[in-house]
Design a binder for these strands. Structure first.
Length: 942
RNA sequence: GCCCUGGUGGUGGAAUUGGUAGACACGCAGGACUUAAAAUCCUGUGGGCAGCAAUGUCCGUGCGGGUUCAAGUCCCGCCUGGGGCACCA
């Protein structure tokens, strides 16, 4: 009988759905296990072979855990708000909800094809009002809380009001000086402290403005990419080289009112939490670097001939006597106040240039640029005048937006000084060679006035103490991380449950949620950079917030909703969150390393603090899946002609025979390896290339290749549906795993899937023989009830151990190969023992569930293989008494010898030295030393 | 630019704790079965040199150094592909 995968897979998918095989209960005696995938954004392009990589891995693991006796939660849903649907709406007038629903239907169909064990009764969609009702509700929790610095916990803001009434804010200082709504709060510099009496005297507006400075979700002003020509705010993605991607219009920075999450208040807890989670070291490092905790000092410098001061943040206060110039961020207001008339023109021109630059460009620019403001700061210790420059490499958002530059100790400062011929003071003696900066902390200070002769590490402390005593600075812990911008001037996102009254934001009553997205006539931006909601008169009349929430709002807590997805009175019931608790295993790409993962951790901590959750880290173990890249194919057309040159004939990709070449992506689906299918190419894109002519090599046209992101515009996507149709879901699942380690990125190549398909057919033949059609089913079955031999049990148990180990360490590629070895060995032994085959089927059911279930039931089992118990490894069957050891001479393997595992050092030495090969390599010389590592190797040192 | 990560045969990859480099596949070559094809099966397959052969021998894990009895694995310095860098998700 033939392996008819299409029929088998449809049959079982329908039966499993009918029986609710994947429905998971919140009540179970079994231990729980929560396996979670990062849910997808349902793009219009549908699923490509890259998407399911992580899903298949998690699916295998979820099924494996089920076989191991766990109650496994393995849900799926959609991150359904987002920019592409809105852009599509602008271009085609289709409501994003409509296109999103359509895309989701496509995704669902594609996912179903692959045979995942998702519990679809728990599906969530972030754009569903039943879902975002709770996103809004959580937002209000954040809006109505602040982080109490004494307890380090999110606390209802009402308690803060009580504290202010009693003692003012002396014990609860303003958390953040960067996003002050300065017009509303009278204090603007330093640590503004007010008393209980002050508080009592403030009017309601001032009080609300002050509370806003504390809220975990707060409103402030921030810069956005503003494109005047399009009248809209652009994502970083949409800005290329300072102009809009669409249309190439100029883009400048513009300050707009924005919502923020005060994630900086959680910086320390987010750092500390990393110690208790099982993430890769790389992931922890990335998050740690992103948070960017540093300690140093804030130092105020007076400005010569000016009442103003310049505050810099430095991690190296010990180098204060080596400061040769200051650099401040061009966008600081201070620049305008201190620039001298002579320098004003140059300064203004430079600011205009910087305004057109993205932060990314500013940071990666190698070319040194900057302008002297004409002003000088005064070194508080020796009165030396220090020129103040502006340069794009200093960003306003980090520290105070100003640095003291010490060229002998900092590479960037050094290059800047060299470029502008600024004299360099050497404070580290011989540690500085004049050729490059030396960031050492081990030097003894020279040329440093009161610090002369003091080692740098000691000087740091001394300088901090001194500036604190003099009242010109203070010790300061700083974070590179900034508060998270939490609003978008867009339509397709969650509306904020916020009403503005006379410039003050008030929370809507939670009982009125959800605040649903209104219908709009057009998805075009509103006036003055506001979002589309600002175009709706009724919305504006109700004084509702016109911003919407960003993409990561809904994804910051979706893992909680899966636990209790239909709850209408809470985001999830406490018994449900207590039962499912943390996500035991979370799988997704590293591209979410610092965004989504940090925000989810923040939301979880806040909800925990406010008493809604028993845990404060959402994800216990995180596995990062690599990205499947596309392998693009190119054809090369001689510019201005219809002639295409085969890749092997050109030496560089831009020209051929003195003529310019156009490098054009072609659809990988009609290229075999690198050989172009000419007929398909000619018919492609409505016969666009019907008249193409070719310069062949060996009668064939070969394409160029490049590894790029998989994307429709590059014509390098491969649709899983096609592969499932041709080879079946089980083959597809196993092949995706067989490609390589889940964590690693790799280009997709369909070649090779045949091998996995052949393997499944070979598995099938362990049960049924190929015979003429029409033969009785019984006559085709080849399995027997005989007792397995020791040899059969040995290969089986070796496989059990290997596969269990591979599953646990997420090494599914070697898992697949272990199945191949097992099937190869059983085939070689002509072994068809039911007892062995059943164990094999149970193990392989998590990789290839359909074929496993089919054969399992063919063997006479009446319950599903999905609920069987994973076979138990027994060492007895694989015990060895001897081993073939590699014998090395001077570390080079020369021969092998089979030795008893019981052998002792003297025995081994004697046996090994007796070997002819060893004698030959010894060449008469006596061995210096014989290294024998039991069960590993023997090495003879001569 | 900064942070993270990868680089092993013609290809995807294996080598889990420093201990037989190339498991398992793809591809390729040769063979069996077949009128033929498909399917299936068998054999070989890192490179060089020597040999009819069995085999022997040298080289070999991006490049250059180092540690070690022993390095794909550890250390130092480079080259290079990928991801992220705060409004793509």
């Amino acid at each position: 009988m033939e392996y008819n995968f299409n029929e088998i897979e449809h049959k079982w998918q329908q039966l499993w759905m009918k029986d609710g095989t994947y429905t998971v209960s919140n009540n179970s005696d079994k231990p729980k296990y929560y396996v979670l995938d990062m849910f997808p954004y349902p793009s219009g392009a549908g699923l490509h072979v890259g998407h399911p990589l992580g899903y298949i891995a998690s699916d295998i693991f979820a099924r494996y855990k089920r076989l191991k006796g766990f109650n496994v939660l393995h849900p799926m849903g959609y991150d359904a708000f987002g920019l592409p649907a809105e852009q599509y709406a602008i271009e085609n007038g289709i409501h994003p909800a409509v296109s999103t629903d359509k895309n989701i239907a496509t995704f669902r169909k594609q996912l179903d094809n692959i045979g995942f064990c998702f519990d679809w009764t728990r599906e969530v969609r972030t754009s569903d009002p039943h879902y975002y009702k709770w996103t809004q509700w959580i937002f209000l929790q954040l809006f109505n809380s602040w982080l109490n610095r004494q307890t380090q916990k999110a606390t209802p803001i009402q308690e803060l009001v009580t504290i202010f009434e009693k003692e003012g804010n002396k014990n609860q200082p303003f958390p953040n000086e960067k996003f002050r709504i300065s017009n509303l709060v009278p204090m603007t510099i330093g640590d503004p402290i007010f008393t209980a009496e002050d508080w009592a005297a403030f009017d309601a507006t001032t009080r609300q403005a002050i509370l806003m400075e504390y809220r975990l979700a707060y409103c402030g002003y921030g810069e956005v990419n503003w494109c005047e020509a399009l009248g809209t705010v652009l994502a970083n993605d949409e800005v290329v080289n300072g102009v809009s991607e669409r249309g190439g219009h100029p883009v400048v920075k513009k300050k707009l009112r924005q919502w923020y999450l005060r994630i900086t208040e959680y910086a320390d807890r987010l750092l500390k939490g990393l110690q208790e989670v099982d993430f890769s070291e790389a992931m922890k490092e990335m998050q740690t670097n992103w948070i960017g905790k540093s300690s140093g000092a804030e130092i105020q410098f007076t400005i010569d001939h000016s009442p103003l001061t310049l505050t810099v943040y430095t991690t190296r206060p010990d180098t204060i006597m080596g400061v040769d110039f200051m650099v401040i961020a061009p966008e600081l207001d201070l620049v305008d106040q201190i620039k001298t008339p002579e320098q004003a023109k140059a300064v203004d021109e430079y600011i205009a240039y910087v305004k057109s630059r993205s932060e990314r460009e500013r940071m990666s620019e190698k070319k040194i640029s900057g302008v002297f403001t004409g002003a000088y700061a005064v070194n508080p210790f020796d009165g030396r005048l220090i020129p103040i420059w502006i340069s794009e490499y200093v960003l306003a958002g980090y520290g105070t937006g100003a640095i003291m530059a010490v060229p002998c100790g900092d590479e960037r400062d050094f290059k800047f000084a060299k470029h502008f011929n600024i004299p360099i003071t050497n404070i580290i003696g011989t540690h500085f060679n004049g050729e490059e900066a030396n960031a050492t902390k081990d030097a003894v200070l020279e040329n440093s006035g009161f610090l002369n002769g003091i080692p740098m590490r000691e000087a740091m402390e001394l300088v901090i103490q001194t500036i604190e005593e003099k009242g010109i600075g203070k010790r300061k812990v700083n974070y590179k991380m900034r508060d998270a911008a939490f609003s978008r001037q867009r339509y397709w996102g969650e509306p904020f449950p916020i009403q503005w009254k006379n410039g003050t934001a008030y929370a809507l009553d939670a009982a009125t949620l959800p605040l649903e997205l209104p219908e709009v006539d057009s998805y075009k931006p509103g006036p003055e950079g506001e979002g589309p909601l600002a175009n709706i008169p009724e919305w504006v009349a109700r004084e509702l917030e016109t911003n919407t929430m960003p993409g990561y709002a809904g994804s910051s807590w979706y893992f909680l909703r899966y636990m209790d997805p239909h709850n209408n009175t809470e985001f999830a019931s406490r018994p449900a969150t207590d039962y499912w608790n943390q996500v035991d295993l979370y799988i997704g790409g590293t591209e979410h390393a610092v965004g989504h993962l940090l925000y989810s951790r923040l939301w979880t901590k806040a909800l925990h603090d406010l008493g809604y959750l028993s845990f404060d880290e959402p994800f216990k173990r995180l596995v990062n899946q690599g990205m499947i890249q596309g392998s693009s194919r190119f054809v090369y057309r001689i510019n201005g002609t219809n002639t295409f040159v085969s890749h092997g004939l050109i030496t560089d990709e831009t020209s051929f025979d003195g003529k310019t070449l156009d490098k054009i992506h072609v659809d990988v689906n009609f290229v075999d390896g690198t050989e172009l299918d000419i007929d398909s190419f000619k018919k492609w894109k409505n016969n666009e290339f019907a008249n193409a002519e070719f310069i062949f090599e060996d009668g064939k046209y070969y394409c160029g290749t490049e590894v790029e992101k998989m994307s429709k515009t590059k014509f390098n996507t491969v649709n899983p549906d096609d592969l499932v149709n041709k080879y079946g879901a089980d083959t597809f699942r196993m092949y995706e795993m067989f490609l390589g380690p889940v964590e690693m990125s790799k280009p997709w190549d369909t070649k090779g899937i045949e091998g996995v398909h052949r393997f499944l057919k070979k598995l099938w033949r362990l049960f049924y023989k190929d015979v003429a059609p029409g033969t009785e089913l019984q006559a085709q079955a080849v399995w027997t009830n005989d007792t397995p031999t020791p040899a059969e049990l040995k290969i089986l148990h070796k496989a059990i151990r290997k596969i269990e180990e591979d599953n646990e360490r997420f090494s599914f590629n070697t898992g697949v190969s272990a199945f191949m070895i097992l099937v190869n060995e059983l085939t070689d032994l002509k072994s068809h023992k039911k007892q062995v085959l059943e164990s094999l089927l149970i193990m392989i059911s998590s990789y290839a569930p359909h074929i496993a279930e089919e054969l399992w039931q063919a063997l006479g089992n009446t319950s599903s293989v999905l609920d069987a118990a994973f076979p138990v490894f027994n060492e007895v069957y694989i015990k060895e008494s001897e081993k073939e050891y590699p014998i090395s001479v001077n570390g080079k393997m020369r021969t092998t010898m089979t030795l008893s595992l019981e052998a002792t050092q003297p025995e081994v030495e004697q046996l090994v030295l007796a070997s002819e090969v060893v004698q030959k390599w010894l060449d008469g010389k006596p061995p210096k030393k014989i290294i024998y590592v039991k069960n590993k190797m023997v090495n003879i040192v001569v």
